[in-house]
Amino acid sequence: MRGFELVHPASLGEAIKLLDTDDPTVRPFSGGTALMLMMKAGVFQPSRLVDLGGIEPEHAAVEATGDGGLKLGAMATLAQVERSADVMRVAPVIPRAMKRLANVRVRNVARIGGNLAHGDPHMDLPPVLSSLGGEVAVTGPAGERRIAIESLFSGYYETVLSQGELIRQVILPPQRGWASAYMKCTTRSADDWPALGVAVSLKLTDGAVQDSRIMVSAATEKLTRLAAAEAALEGAQPGEAAFARAADAAATEAETIDDARGSAEYKTELLRVYVKRALAEAVRNGAVQ
């Protein structure tokens, strides 16, 4: 690792100015856990890092919205989100997923915004937050825009964010009536990165599935929403038969990839099993009141 410029803007606006360049060796630095790995491995050599630790504290706020949703400031640490009573009430699936997400030290410093912006398909939060219908508010030199988290990723370690754009906030819509679950599967040590992550959210009305979001990660090149699986559930009675239909649809539509954690073929079979199990788990968890 070679020396670089480390700058400490005091505001989001100042940070965006410092990042407004075409130079890809200028990058924002929040928790830094992922960036440090790349720097230590020599795969990323920055010329300038823009430390976001000193920007306005409001960007680290975690709060429930009046309508039963959540706003998570991008600079909130994962640990802060994990421990938030608001998050526990509105979206208990998030703290449950946190228990087995990376490790305590990473959760203590990694930020929600950085976690999403890194674009790593093996992360747990993208499927969870997208299954909850989450969006990110993104700020850049050209102003602010909103992006659904399910559309944030354009490829393997790639996002639709432009150079100089920063995730400012994660916005979750009202969760009342939705039942959610996240399950992941590791194929080597228990604390490995997942071979597969499945997040599901179901809205049940009068005993039938009115709406659903089913997301797969890790087994695919990027976070993927499984529309055919969702379609298979629409209007169905929740239960083994419907979940099996959804699982088969998921296995058919998902484009799984080979890696050291397993072959594409195997991951497709894992997906079939885990979609079923995650849907059942969501029903067991029950809807958020």
Binding site: L6, G32, T33, M36, K40, D51, V106, N108, V109
Partner: peptide
């Protein structure tokens, strides 16, 4: 007061 991995922490910070 918060546990971190020293190897992933920039000293200047």
């Amino acid at each position: 007061g918060v546990a971190v991995s020293g190897c992933l922490t920039l000293a200047q910070l």
